[in-house]
Protein backbone atom coordinates (compact mmCIF):
# COMPACT_ATOMS: atom_id res chain seq x y z
CA UNK A 1 0.00 0.00 0.00
CA UNK A 2 2.73 2.31 0.89
CA UNK A 3 4.19 2.23 -2.55
CA UNK A 4 0.95 3.80 -3.78
CA UNK A 5 1.29 6.85 -1.66
CA UNK A 6 2.20 9.18 -4.48
CA UNK A 7 -0.50 7.87 -6.64
CA UNK A 8 -3.01 8.31 -3.89
CA UNK A 9 -2.03 11.83 -3.20
CA UNK A 10 -2.09 12.75 -6.84
CA UNK A 11 -5.32 10.92 -7.16
CA UNK A 12 -6.91 12.83 -4.35
CA UNK A 13 -6.11 15.96 -6.26
CA UNK A 14 -7.14 14.68 -9.59
CA UNK A 15 -10.40 12.97 -8.83
CA UNK A 16 -12.39 16.11 -8.08
CA UNK A 17 -10.90 17.70 -11.13
CA UNK A 18 -11.88 14.77 -13.21
CA UNK A 19 -15.40 14.99 -11.99
CA UNK A 20 -15.57 18.68 -12.57
CA UNK A 21 -14.18 18.16 -16.02
CA UNK A 22 -16.82 15.64 -16.58
CA UNK A 23 -19.46 18.11 -15.61
CA UNK A 24 -17.88 20.67 -17.87
CA UNK A 25 -17.97 18.30 -20.76
CA UNK A 26 -21.54 17.61 -19.98
CA UNK A 27 -22.73 21.16 -19.82
CA UNK A 28 -20.62 22.22 -22.73
CA UNK A 29 -22.24 19.56 -24.78
CA UNK A 30 -24.95 22.02 -25.59
CA UNK A 31 -22.67 24.16 -27.67
CA UNK A 32 -19.71 22.15 -28.71
CA UNK A 33 -18.27 18.68 -28.59
CA UNK A 34 -19.28 17.00 -25.41
CA UNK A 35 -22.32 15.68 -23.72
CA UNK A 36 -23.68 13.15 -21.33
CA UNK A 37 -21.93 10.12 -22.75
CA UNK A 38 -18.51 11.51 -22.56
CA UNK A 39 -19.18 13.16 -19.28
CA UNK A 40 -20.53 10.00 -17.81
CA UNK A 41 -17.48 8.07 -18.80
CA UNK A 42 -15.22 10.74 -17.38
CA UNK A 43 -17.09 10.79 -14.10
CA UNK A 44 -16.99 7.05 -13.95
CA UNK A 45 -13.31 7.17 -14.66
CA UNK A 46 -12.91 9.29 -11.60
CA UNK A 47 -14.71 6.76 -9.46
CA UNK A 48 -12.78 3.91 -10.97
CA UNK A 49 -9.55 5.71 -10.37
CA UNK A 50 -10.54 6.00 -6.75
CA UNK A 51 -11.20 2.35 -6.59
CA UNK A 52 -7.89 1.57 -8.19
CA UNK A 53 -6.05 3.73 -5.73
CA UNK A 54 -7.88 3.00 -2.53
CA UNK A 55 -9.30 -0.38 -3.15
CA UNK A 56 -12.68 -1.64 -4.07
CA UNK A 57 -13.89 -1.80 -0.54
CA UNK A 58 -13.20 1.86 0.12
CA UNK A 59 -14.74 2.77 -3.16
CA UNK A 60 -17.83 0.84 -2.34
CA UNK A 61 -18.07 2.74 0.86
CA UNK A 62 -17.74 5.98 -1.02
CA UNK A 63 -20.01 5.05 -3.86
CA UNK A 64 -22.24 2.26 -2.57
CA UNK A 65 -23.51 -0.22 -5.15
CA UNK A 66 -27.05 0.69 -4.18
CA UNK A 67 -26.35 4.20 -5.45
CA UNK A 68 -25.22 2.70 -8.65
CA UNK A 69 -28.51 0.99 -9.18
CA UNK A 70 -30.43 4.03 -8.22
CA UNK A 71 -28.22 6.17 -10.41
CA UNK A 72 -29.00 4.03 -13.41
CA UNK A 73 -32.68 4.34 -12.74
CA UNK A 74 -32.48 8.03 -12.09
CA UNK A 75 -30.63 8.52 -15.34
CA UNK A 76 -33.29 6.77 -17.29
CA UNK A 77 -35.93 8.65 -15.41
CA UNK A 78 -34.33 11.94 -16.25
CA UNK A 79 -34.31 11.03 -19.85
CA UNK A 80 -37.81 9.73 -19.98
CA UNK A 81 -39.05 12.27 -17.52
CA UNK A 82 -38.13 14.96 -19.96
CA UNK A 83 -40.21 13.19 -22.49
CA UNK A 84 -43.01 12.92 -20.02
CA UNK A 85 -42.83 16.60 -19.30
CA UNK A 86 -43.04 17.39 -22.99
CA UNK A 87 -46.04 15.16 -23.11
CA UNK A 88 -47.60 16.89 -20.21
CA UNK A 89 -47.02 20.20 -21.84
CA UNK A 90 -48.97 18.99 -24.80
CA UNK A 91 -46.15 18.23 -27.18
CA UNK A 92 -44.90 15.08 -28.65
CA UNK A 93 -42.50 12.79 -26.89
CA UNK A 94 -39.16 14.60 -26.44
CA UNK A 95 -40.56 17.59 -28.25
CA UNK A 96 -38.38 20.07 -26.39
CA UNK A 97 -39.83 23.09 -28.07
CA UNK A 98 -42.73 23.06 -25.67
CA UNK A 99 -40.45 23.40 -22.66
CA UNK A 100 -40.08 27.10 -23.22
CA UNK A 101 -42.67 29.33 -24.68
CA UNK A 102 -40.12 31.21 -26.76
CA UNK A 103 -40.83 30.60 -30.38
CA UNK A 104 -38.07 32.61 -32.03
CA UNK A 105 -35.24 30.93 -30.14
CA UNK A 106 -35.05 27.21 -29.47
CA UNK A 107 -34.57 27.68 -25.78
CA UNK A 108 -36.73 24.68 -25.08
CA UNK A 109 -34.25 22.57 -26.99
CA UNK A 110 -31.47 23.67 -24.68
CA UNK A 111 -33.41 22.85 -21.58
CA UNK A 112 -34.51 19.52 -22.90
CA UNK A 113 -31.05 18.53 -24.05
CA UNK A 114 -29.51 19.40 -20.72
CA UNK A 115 -31.93 17.20 -18.86
CA UNK A 116 -31.74 14.39 -21.27
CA UNK A 117 -27.98 14.48 -21.24
CA UNK A 118 -28.05 14.60 -17.49
CA UNK A 119 -29.92 11.39 -17.55
CA UNK A 120 -27.36 9.97 -19.93
CA UNK A 121 -24.60 11.14 -17.64
CA UNK A 122 -26.07 9.40 -14.67
CA UNK A 123 -26.68 6.26 -16.49
CA UNK A 124 -23.41 6.01 -18.27
CA UNK A 125 -21.43 6.88 -15.21
CA UNK A 126 -23.22 4.41 -13.00
CA UNK A 127 -23.20 1.67 -15.61
CA UNK A 128 -19.48 2.04 -16.07
CA UNK A 129 -18.98 1.83 -12.37
CA UNK A 130 -21.37 -1.05 -12.17
CA UNK A 131 -19.39 -2.96 -14.77
CA UNK A 132 -16.26 -2.22 -12.88
CA UNK A 133 -17.76 -3.37 -9.64
CA UNK A 134 -19.09 -6.45 -11.26
CA UNK A 135 -15.73 -7.53 -12.56
CA UNK A 136 -13.83 -6.27 -9.63
CA UNK A 137 -15.90 -8.23 -7.17
CA UNK A 138 -15.32 -11.46 -8.99
CA UNK A 139 -11.66 -11.71 -8.43
CA UNK A 140 -11.47 -13.71 -5.23
CA UNK A 141 -13.81 -16.37 -6.54
CA UNK A 142 -11.68 -16.95 -9.54
CA UNK A 143 -8.67 -17.26 -7.35
CA UNK A 144 -10.40 -19.97 -5.41
CA UNK A 145 -11.24 -21.83 -8.52
CA UNK A 146 -7.73 -21.50 -9.74
CA UNK A 147 -6.49 -23.57 -6.85
CA UNK A 148 -8.77 -26.37 -7.73
CA UNK A 149 -7.45 -26.70 -11.19
Amino acid sequence: MNSHIILRVVGKFLIPLIIIFGLYVHFHGDFGPGGGFQAGVIVAAGVILYALLFGLKACKQAVPPSWIRIGMTVGVLFYVGTGLVTWMLGGKFLDFDVLHPATDHPLGQHIGIIFVELGVLFTVATVMVAIFYAFGSRQPQIMDDEKDF
Binding site: F31, G32, D104, H105, Q109
Partner: peptide, 16 residues
Protein backbone atom coordinates in the same frame (compact mmCIF):
# COMPACT_ATOMS: atom_id res chain seq x y z
CA UNK B 1 -20.83 32.45 -33.14
CA UNK B 2 -22.84 30.93 -30.42
CA UNK B 3 -20.02 29.53 -28.42
CA UNK B 4 -20.43 30.52 -24.86
CA UNK B 5 -22.97 33.19 -25.76
CA UNK B 6 -26.12 33.89 -23.87
CA UNK B 7 -29.49 32.65 -24.80
CA UNK B 8 -30.96 35.97 -25.70
CA UNK B 9 -33.31 35.96 -28.52
CA UNK B 10 -31.40 38.59 -30.39
CA UNK B 11 -28.18 36.67 -30.35
CA UNK B 12 -29.23 33.18 -30.73
CA UNK B 13 -31.70 33.75 -33.47
CA UNK B 14 -29.94 31.40 -35.77
CA UNK B 15 -29.46 28.34 -33.62
CA UNK B 16 -31.57 26.21 -35.74
Amino acid sequence: GLHGGDYGPENGAGHG
